[in-house]
Design a protein around this nucleic acid. Sequence first.
DNA 1: TTATAATTAATAATGATTATTAAAAAAGAA
DNA 2: TTCTTTTTTAATAATCATTATTAATTATAA
Lengths: 144, 144
Amino acid sequence: MGRDEFIDACKQVGLNVTYQRIAIFNKLMEHTDHPSADDIYKEVRQDYPTISLATVYKTLETLAKHDLISKVTYLHDIARYDGTSEAHHHLVCIKCKKIIDIDSNALDAIGIPAGVPGNFRILNYRVQFDGICESCESASTEQE
Amino acid sequence: MGRDEFIDACKQVGLNVTYQRIAIFNKLMEHTDHPSADDIYKEVRQDYPTISLATVYKTLETLAKHDLISKVTYLHDIARYDGTSEAHHHLVCIKCKKIIDIDSNALDAIGIPAGVPGNFRILNYRVQFDGICESCESASTEQE
DNA sequence: TTATAATTAATAATGATTATTAAAAAAGAA
DNA sequence: TTCTTTTTTAATAATCATTATTAATTATAA
């Protein structure tokens, strides 16, 4: 998404188009390496020295909430442990952050596809399915 | 892994077998929902009121380091953002935590396999490949 | 313009995690 | 066993990412 598209997208979701939002979005788009809020802050501050780190955090979360960008590590707030050390696959509820194991031969058989750089030694992989669990689903339909 | 296997495994990796380690491991194994350190702490404290939260953290990290258990959310320390909101796949360096996008039609075509509970509304999925990137690889071979 | 709502900047507060350190427990040697 | 050394634990302080607060600023609507 380019700058103009971003501006349109902000308007569509009802966000005011501010200099800060554009600057933060632009810096994020310049990256291919999935930066942290602090990374973005340090860069944006070059052009805009009075911006606050809290603004960067808030803006990134706001943009993610409206699906203009995304958070790669949305389960990052608390460390979660697993009794087994073997790589396997998970179902994650995006509402309550419940994590459920998936046992699937089909997923174990994926292997390493084309499109994966060769200069990277891959140790294992895991598939994460994001969705809404039964109890969160029924909790939300009760509201209607 | 059961209790006895755990004790053997500790010995194999050179960790002393302590009451605390057994208690923490047992509680973790009772869970299917991938608890946090604090969850484990609250439960272990029922049986062992003098245990410290820091001990639980340290023990979980120690066990994970020796591959007796694992951390589901090992990228959890800092939130990382992505300029696009479309689900896609990633390569993650387990050393420097670099995240690289993978564009793969094969991965996009996986779909939802058998083994995934039906009472869960899946919104999307992503495959994460864990490994060692080129620069971390060459940095470690320099040591030899 | 004027009023109202949204956003920002600065800073304080929170909360998860880690570091520190002294005491306790375990392991090894005599 | 007893002494010595190393590892582990408990308690607590410190750190650091993130969020909340609040007053000032900016944008929008009337």
